[in-house]
Design a protein around this nucleic acid. Sequence first.
DNA 1: AATGGGACCTGCGCGC
DNA 2: TGCGCGCAGGTCCCAT
Length: 266
Amino acid sequence: MPELPEVETLRRELEKTIVGKKFSGVDIKQAKVIRDPAPVEFKKRLIGTTVKDILRKAKVLIVELSNGSSLVVHLKMTGQLVYPGTGKNARVSFSFTDGTSLDFNDQRLFAELRVMKDWRTLTFIQGLGPEPFALTREGFLKMLASKKTKIKPLLMDQAFISGIGNLYAAEALFKARISPARSAHGLTDKEKDSLFTAIKEVLTDAIKEGGSSVDNYVRLSGKPGGYVAYHAVYGREGKPCLSCGAPIRRIALGGRGTYFCSRCQK
DNA sequence: AATGGGACCTGCGCGC
DNA sequence: TGCGCGCAGGTCCCAT
């Protein structure tokens, strides 16, 4: 799923490829993904503007435009951005004045596109907790101290810490050797410390590999990200733990599939 | 206040 | 072979 590493991968690739390009057309084939404003106005606000910069906030991509507004993209679970586009599976196809185009694909239609005067006013963005890379060790320890919830759902709570989803929560907890069902405030300082380090390592490594292509995620080129080869637990139910050999287990936690090694993670 | 479940969607893999 | 069903998970919303 597109989590911080996948969205950051796309941000970097978009930065290299579409900054400076001018929108010449927007072909909306599935209006449902356009959340605001209505399709006709959405098009009008894009066409003729030039891409100035590409930002990322947690899992949200922000394409800053020459007219001061922004194209705000949340890929949710199956959203894709592909460049150069073919238009084949596109829900929305953006064309540029140089004749190339950018495809927005989304199998399950959960993703959300907006054009906003100020992306900072988006409620979801205002509710985001700090990103892992913006946190200090001490800050992270303090945040966990007052939380009695289970650590894995807490890591996925965007208002608590932003950018981590189901996959990287599982991988970070494995790396820190912490059971996903432990309560946050019950972790020892040493465990919290390991978790903080593990989160940053897992995210950094995943970005290096261009993200994890499970289900639909692809890089801007349409090619898969390579981090799946490094997954220790996610998607590995029944397979031997890379550390101890015990079969990886999958349980439901907070309604989500949760992979872990019950021998290594205590 | 925190937690759980359903809703939003589609396509895939499974069992019969 | 083909059909129906469960499941995947980011986020919101509602109920408890």
